[in-house]
Each structure stands twice: as structure tokens, then as C-alpha cells.
Design a protein around this nucleic acid. Structure first.
Length: 847
RNA sequence: GCCCGGAUGGCGAAACUGGCAGACGCAGCGGACUUAAAAUCCGCAGGCCGCAAGGCCGUGGGGGUUCAAGUCCCCCUCCGGGCACCA
């Protein structure tokens, strides 16, 4: 007899073999047609930027998504699980400068490399729907959408102060500026420049973007809160003060002769208007500019205030700016009281929020209070607590649950009533109205860079701005181009690109040379997956309608604002264009935690990067993926420990050997299982098996604690290994062995697809394991017939008693009282009370 | 300053609605197999005291509710993230 061959788990042998087979069978991971009759499930991981190398964050992200996709396939869903490339962006231009490689070549090379890595990981993507945003068949539709939005007034051009990153040599959106620094260059301060730029009117959807958050119950509360803060809705009143004519030295009555000119302020506390003791204007306010033009001393001081604001913004510390202001020498009239108050210019007033002007109420606003203290501006109390207190509350008194005092005819009115009445009055007098202000600004999308979607517009001397007609799309990004970092958009130096004829008049004209922010690309890419090869449209509405909304979207929380707010906006625009019916792109969003090493986020500068290729080479893709799911719950940060990967690899080896050893018996098993005696080891194993099925199934339905799923499978395997002799001897019938092994393989398959494919075949399973049905837990089998009940005395554990499952309380109580150790513990004392929690515990309260 | 998370063995973590704290794994220790090692298998393992039986302590700190608290309530500390003169 031949010696038993030693079984070694060899992922390097197993994995490439299956990788080849899967590559040869593109239908395996492809979605069925929309009329397949199966329920649809769209699971999506955020598409990567093709840097050239997957990092562990990607591995984690995709391992989560792939496990879910595989599970849903096995549950019988028609699963769409696509992947693509967010392929425009500055790194390609930097690489071009550095290596003298054209951005396109560099990008496509990176895509090929990363795709190989993904395939090596065994990720089940439908590569037939792959997209790369840098290719004309994709970005053509960016241009098409741009034109549709232009027609609807959702795209406009304006000159304004914009964020400029000197390192990127381009403009940034507000969302791309973090603490005054560039989102890609943490060390680079963003400058403010005046530039003519294209904007998307995202503010037109501000209210809807806000309201929609309430309905996104499948999104993390954290993300919803961040978006709410970003949108920053604020209800208040705009109201006009007036320049006091007799004191305004010519400014006030220049236009209107008698009445002073209005100064419009925005306030959320119109009820405190009788407490306003100054007006504060932003240094950039038009009236300030006008005043400064007449007063060189003031002009100089205003210039200083502007500098301070700029410095604070650049330091990323606008909130900590030391308040500083200058009186203008002019006065304003309070429209309600007729009182004259001084007009100041202050560095803490923002020009681009509200009206750039406030009424300063130091008695009831912390900032105004601080300012008034510094400059000895009067502080007046105009709100009192509703309930008269022994002492007056300290100022500034910020509560809105009070009543007005020293406010003329409004004395005694509550704050909330006063807000309504004063707002109403402003409207009647034509000096203002209740308004809503948002923090959200329009999305500046112009980039003075090369590697992006050309903006489909032409500048004509005669006709002004003229959209490129649809039939001329795509406006192709020229390929041969010299990349430099200065001197405006590189496209401006490509004559054959720039010089066009005006689509309207046919005269020579100049093509727009800015490109679109790459966040445009990722705002709608997931719709393209539903119809990726469509040459006539971005997608066929019927297809998008079938798949949308995305059932589960998975990605990093760093996109909570940028990508996730832009794509919500885009979805609403597409809905209003009649292309889709859904209001939101994704029903459920999951944000996974970061992968860290030695307590810090992996980064080249910290030298703590772990390469996925390295892990795969050493332990295999299955072990790498499974470790990424096992080491921590998916929503928490994960500390990468290589020893842990080795442990998972060892575990997979145990699974391999266990199944291989008993596969022969399992294959030959005929008929169903018959389990009788309670002492039967089969029964114990089947119980554990069905408990494990129930646990894992439940987790896939929403809890997603894949770390404990893997632990549960480990427990099951431990039990099966411990019963190795019974499995081998026939004491456990072959039919049971077969059920145990095949089910084990099915349970493992979402986490370790290569190994399970191999073992599934070994067990003689039909077709791909992915096409097998997810196992069902049999509650009768899973049920314990005996329970261990801890017995406490005065809340302290004394012993554990075994009782049949479902025992009546008095039976459990009797068992507890009969226990030797319990009896010795309560000897000589009186049992005052017995608490029996069915199936859980017994607590004896003794005195 | 405001809003979210989080803090449990040497380490990653578990404990779904209050009911045996530390499952599962890593590292460690002991054993089997081996000439030896690797691999594998079996066992031990929160801390302190004890030969043991057993006892005491223990989920960042302090108070509270409860028969019973990692879990609920109040106060505080530290760590991570987000927002921040937004009037």
C-alpha cells in the first residue's frame, strides 16, 4: 500500500489555475440580461484612480464588495458587479513631466497593471462593462451632459475669486480645499485668484440635496451629517439698514437725494435687532470699496484687514483670526428703532456668505460680544429669559427661548414670534424678507490642466460663447502635447486644438482650453456600467432604470463630501433631464475603515506600506483577502499584521486538508443522512454546521461582521477536525460527511473563492461554486437540546448547570438549587428571591 | 468651541435586544511526531495570591440605576475623524 501522500495547501498552484479558467469564462461574473426574471442586485465599489499599484485599502474595499457579490449570486440574484478606472487627473501629467511618458500611455499601462492585480486577487468583476474615464467613448458623455446642463442654465461662466493650487497649477473646487490647503498637496497653501471659470449650479439643488439626506436611511449617519454641515442651510432674514444721510458725507444721497441708501444685512436673529449697536461689513463689501475710494486712510486700513483675512485663510485657520475692525466714520439707521449706529469694517466678516454685512448684536452673539468688548462698542440686553430669574443671565445671552425687552412695541413677545413678525414687517415695508442661506457654493469645474475632459465650448469674437454642437462630440483631447506646469492650460498651446471655426457664424474662433474637474467623471460613471458599450447615448434609460438605484455602494469615508455630493447632484440633474427615475444614486452606502500599520495610515513617507503583491506571493490571494475581512469589522480601522495573514493561511490549509482527506467518502455517499441517537457525533457536527450557516447568512443580511463570520467558520472547522477519527471511520455516515464538507466549502466561498472552487471540484460539485445555492440553515438541526445555565448567587457566578432546552423555570430553578456548589454557597442563608431568565441565567438572592 | 466614532489580555478582537467578559486568531509556553528542524497535531494561557482546592481583583476614571452593567443614566480623561468667526 502506498504511503498516504502528504497534503499541502499550495495557493500558488491552485490560484493561477482558476484565474485562467475564470478569464476564459467571461460569462461567469457577468450580469444576466435585465429580463432574466431574477431579482437584481447592484453592488459597487468606488472605482480607483489608476496609480499603477493597488494598495491595501483597495484590497479591503474590494474584498468586502466581492464577498457580498458572491453571496448574492449564490442567493439567486442577478448581480451587477462592475469595475472601472477614474483615469483622468494630474498624476498622469506629473508622470509625463518626470518620465517623459505621454499621460495616455502612462495611464493605460497603469490600468493594465492594476487590472492584473485585481484578477490575481480573484475579484469577480464583469470586465465586459469596464470603463476608463479618459477614453473618448466615455468623456464624450461628460461633454454631452455639460451641454444639456448649459441649455438648462445649470452651467454658467463667471469671473470670481477661485482657489488656486500653485503645485497643481490649476483651480480647485471648494470641496477640494481642506484647511486652506490642496487636497492633493497637504503642504501647499491654496491662493485666491480672480479668474473666469465654468460653474455647475449645484446650489439650485441645495434644498433637495439636504432633504434627500433624511431619506437615505441606508447611509451612515456620519456621512449624512457631514453633508448637512457642508450644505449648511440657515434660515434667517435679510433686512436693510440705511446710510444716515446727514452724516454720510455725500455717499448716501448721491443716488436718492433724501433717503439714505440701503445696507442689506443677513441675520438669523432678527428678534435681536433692537440690540444692534453697529453694522459690520466685510472688507470686500462694495460700500466699503466706495467709502475707501473717498478716504485714503480708510483704504489703507481696509487693505490690512484684507491681508489678515487672506493670511488666516491660507493658514487654514479662519476660525482663529484675531478680530480686528475699523470704524468707517459713517452711520446707519436701524429701520425698526430709527437709531443711528456706526458702520465698521471687520476682518471676521465673510464677503461670500449672506450679504457680506451683518448687524452686530453684542448682547446676544458671542462673536459680536468679543468684538464689542475689544472696541468698547455698547452692549445692550434685548432678550430676557421667559421665566423671570433672580439674576439677569450673563451676556452674551444666546438662548432663543426668551422674550424681547427694550424693543419698543415688541417687548414681551417671544423670540420665535418676534422673528416671524419682524420678518413680516420687513416685507410689508419693503426693506427685506425672510430668506434661506446656504453655505454650499456652486461647483467650479474649470481646470487649467491637460489630462481631463475638454469643455465643449467655443469663444467667438462675434457670437461670444457658443456650445459645440452634439454632432461634433466628442471634442477629442489631442495626444501629442508638451506638458508644462506653468503658463495656463497646456491645451492653449496646441494650435490645431484651439483654432476652430465658430459653429454659429463660421468665422475663426477659439476653443475653450480648460478641462473639467475629474470629479465630473466619477459623478455618473455607475450609470455607464449598465450600458457601457453604447455609442449612441450615455446609456439606455431602460437599462439604468432596471439597475438603479445601486443596492450597495462601498468605499472610503474620504469621499463623504466630494464624490458623494457631486454624484447625488448629478443624479438629480439626470432625473430632471428625463434619463432616469431615481432621485438618489445608491440606497445603501457602506464606508469601510482605513488600513493602518503600526498605528498609522500606510504611506510611502512613513515607510509602512504593505504591498498586496507581496502578500499574495507569500500567502496567496485567498489568505490576503480573508485576512482583510477577519482582522477587524469592516467599518473600523484595520491594523495590518502579517502574522495574522499567516494564521489565516494556516487555517485555509486546514480546510484544504480536511476536505481533501474526506472527499473520497463524500463523493461516494449515496442517499440522505439518517441521524438518530443524541450522542451521535453526526448530530453534534450538523448542529454546529447549521448554527454556522444561520450566523453567516444573518451577517450578510446587514450586520456585515465578516470578522466573526470567519471566526465561526474556524470554530466549525475546529469541531470537524476534532471529529476526524469519526469522519474517517464511517461512524459519521458518508452522507453526513458530504453535507458537512460541501456546505463548508459553500460557506467559505465568498471569502476564499480560489480554495472553494478547487475543493468544490474535488467534491464533485456541479458547475461553478458561484452558481450553487447558498445553504439554508435547518432550525431543527441548529437547535441545542441541552443548555448550560450559569447560576449566580447575589449576582456572582457560582456554577453552571445543564438542563434540557426549553425547560420550565421551576425545573431550572430546582436544578440550580440542587447543585452542590450552589448549596454550599447558600448554606445557612435564606433564599429571598429567585430570578430565572429563560435560557439565560438563574440568580439567587440570599440573605 | 460644536458634532460623530472609539478606549476590553502582550497584540488584532468577541460578547445582536442588560444575563458565564475575553469566542476566533496572532504572539507565547508545554507536549506528540522527527536523528534534528520545518510543517502538522494535541494541550495551557486576563491579573494577583495559593502546591492545590479555591479566593480576590478585572472592560479608560468617578458616581448611579438594577437581582444582574463592557452593555443603560450622569460627570470626567484620553485617542481618532469631521465641522468651525457661516452672522
Amino acid at each position: 500500500m502506498a504511503e498516504e501522500k502528504e497534503l499541502r495547501y499550495d495557493p500558488a498552484g491552485i490560484e493561477p489555475k482558476w484565474q485562467e479558467r475564470w478569464a476564459a469564462d467571461p460569462a461567469l461574473y457577468a450580469a444576466d440580461p435585465t429580463d432574466s426574471g431574477k431579482p437584481k442586485y447592484y453592488v459597487l465599489e468606488m472605482l480607483p484612480y489608476p496609480s499603477g499599484q493597488l494598495h491595501m485599502g483597495h484590497v479591503r474595499n474590494y474584498s468586502i464588495g466581492d464577498a457580498l457579490a458572491r453571496h448574492m449570486w449564490m442567493r439567486g440574484y442577478n448581480v451587477l458587479h462592475p469595475m472601472g478606472w477614474d483615469a483622468f487627473g494630474l498624476p498622469a501629467e506629473n508622470a509625463a513631466l518626470k518620465n517623459n511618458t505621454p499621460p495616455r500611455e502612462w495611464t493605460l499601462g497603469n490600468i493594465a497593471a492594476m487590472k492584473r492585480q485585481m484578477q490575481r486577487l480573484g475579484l469577480g468583476y464583469d470586465w465586459a462593462t469596464e470603463i476608463a474615464t479618459c477614453l473618448p467613448d466615455y468623456y464624450k458623455w461628460n461633454q454631452w451632459f455639460f451641454l444639456r446642463m448649459y441649455e438648462r442654465g445649470l452651467v454658467y461662466r463667471k469671473k470670481s475669486k477661485v482657489n488656486w493650487c500653485p503645485e497643481c497649477a490649476t483651480v480647485l473646487a471648494n470641496e477640494q480645499v481642506i484647511d486652506g490647503r490642496c487636497w492633493r498637496h497637504e503642504d501647499t497653501l491654496v491662493e485666491q485668484r480672480d479668474l473666469e471659470q465654468w460653474f455647475f449650479r449645484i446650489t439650485a439643488y441645495a434644498q433637495e440635496l439636504l432633504d434627500g439626506l433624511d431619506k437615505l436611511e441606508g447611509w451612515p449617519e456620519k456621512v449624512r451629517t457631514m453633508q448637512r454641515n457642508w450644505i449648511g442651510r440657515s434660515e434667517g432674514t435679510e433686512v436693510e439698514f440705511f446710510l444716515a444721510e446727514e452724516l454720510n458725507q455725500g455717499i448716501g444721497n448721491r443716488e436718492q437725494g433724501t433717503a439714505g441708501r440701503p445696507i442689506r444685512v443677513f441675520t438669523t436673529r432678527i428678534d435681536t435687532i433692537f440690540g444692534a449697536t453697529s453694522i459690520q461689513l466685510a472688507p470686500e463689501h462694495a460700500l466699503v470699496q466706495e467709502m475707501a475710494a473717498l478716504d485714503s486712510g480708510l483704504a489703507k486700513q481696509v487693505g490690512e484687514l484684507l491681508d489678515e483675512q487672506k493670511k488666516a485663510r491660507e493658514a487654514g485657520d479662519v476660525g482663529a483670526i484675531e478680530k480686528h475692525g475699523v470704524p468707517t466714520g459713517h452711520f446707519a439707521v436701524n429701520p425698526y428703532s430709527g437709531e443711528q449706529i456706526p458702520i465698521w469694517v471687520a476682518n471676521y466678516i465673510l464677503a461670500d456668505y449672506g450679504t457680506g454685512a451683518i448687524m452686530s448684536v453684542p448682547g446676544h452673539d458671542a462673536r459680536d460680544f468679543e468684538f464689542a468688548q475689544k472696541y468698547a462698542i455698547p452692549v445692550r440686553r434685548v432678550i430676557a429669559p421667559a421665566e423671570a430669574a433672580a439674576e439677569e443671565p450673563e451676556l452674551p445671552y444666546l438662548s432663543e427661548d426668551g422674550v424681547l425687552i427694550h424693543s419698543g412695541e415688541f417687548d414681551g413677545v417671544t423670540c420665535h414670534q418676534a422673528q416671524e413678525r419682524l420678518g413680516q414687517m420687513a416685507m410689508e415695508k419693503g426693506i427685506g424678507e425672510p430668506t434661506v442661506t446656504f453655505r454650499l457654493k456652486d461647483w467650479g469645474v474649470s481646470r487649467q490642466r491637460y489630462w481631463g475632459t475638454p469643455i465643449p465650448m467655443v469663444h467667438c469674437a462675434t457670437d461670444g460663447i457658443v456650445p459645440v454642437p452634439d454632432e461634433q462630440l466628442p471634442v477629442i483631447l489631442p495626444e501629442r502635447i508638451e506638458i508644462t506646469q506653468q503658463g495656463g492650460s497646456p491645451l492653449g498651446r496646441v494650435a490645431e486644438f484651439v483654432n476652430v471655426t465658430c459653429p454659429k457664424c463660421g468665422q475663426p474662433a477659439r476653443r475653450e482650453t480648460d478641462t473639467m474637474d475629474t470629479f465630473v467623471d466619477s459623478s455618473w460613471y455607475f450609470y455607464r456600467y449598465t450600458d457601457a458599450k453604447n455609442a449612441a447615448a450615455a446609456f439606455e434609460p431602460a437599462k439604468a432604470q432596471h439597475w438603479f438605484p445601486i443596492d450597495q455602494y462601498i468605499g472610503g469615508v474620504e469621499h463623504a463630501i466630494l464624490h458623494l455630493i457631486y454624484s447625488r447632484f448629478w443624479t438629480k440633474v439626470m432625473r430632471d433631464l428625463g434619463l432616469i427615475k431615481n432621485d438618489e444614486p445608491a440606497t445603501r452606502l457602506f464606508t469601510q475603515g482605513m488600513v493602518i500599520k503600526d498605528g498609522a495610515k500606510m504611506s510611502k513617507s512613513k515607510g509602512n506600506v504593505v504591498s498586496p503583491d507581496d502578500m499574495i506571493a507569500r500567502y496567496g490571494a485567498d489568505a490576503t483577502r480573508m485576512y482583510a475581512l477577519f482582522a477587524a469589522p469592516p467599518d473600523r480601522d484595520l491594523e495590518w499584521q502579517e502574522d495574522g495573514v499567516a494564521g489565516v493561511s494556516r487555517f485555509l490549509g486546514r480546510v484544504y486538508r480536511l476536505v481533501m482527506k474526506h472527499a473520497g467518502a463524500a463523493r461516494e455517499a449515496a442517499g440522505g443522512r439518517a441521524v438518530t441517537a443524541p450522542a451521535d457525533p453526526s448530530l453534534k457536527l450538523l448542529r454546529k454546521l447549521h448554527q454556522t450557516i444561520a450566523k453567516i447568512t444573518h451577517d450578510f443580511e446587514g450586520r456585515w461582521h465578516f470578522n466573526t463570520c470567519v471566526a465561526a467558520i474556524m470554530e466549525l472547522v475546529n469541531d470537524m477536525t476534532a471529529a476526524d477519527v469519526q469522519l474517517a471511520s464511517g461512524e459519521v455516515p458518508a452522507a453526513v460527511v458530504r453535507e458537512l464538507l460541501t456546505t463548508l466549502v459553500l460557506l467559505v466561498s465568498p471569502f476564499a473563492p480560489y480554495l472553494s472552487a478547487e475543493l468544490w471540484e474535488e467534491l464533485g460539485g456541479e458547475g461553478a461554486v458561484l452558481r450553487a445555492s447558498w445553504p439554508k440553515s435547518d432550525p431543527a438541526l441548529a437547535k441545542e437540546d441541552e443548555l448550560e445555565i450559569p447560576v449566580q448567587v447575589n449576582g456572582r457566578l457560582v456554577n453552571v448547570v445543564r438542563v434540557p432546552a426549553g425547560s420550565a423555570n421551576d425545573v431550572v430553578q430546582a436544578a440550580a438549587l440542587a447543585d452542590e456548589r450552589v448549596r454550599s454557597r447558600i448554606a445557612g442563608k435564606t433564599v429571598a428571591k429567585v430570578i430565572v431568565v429563560p435560557g439565560k441565567t438563574v440568580n439567587l438572592v440570599v440573605k
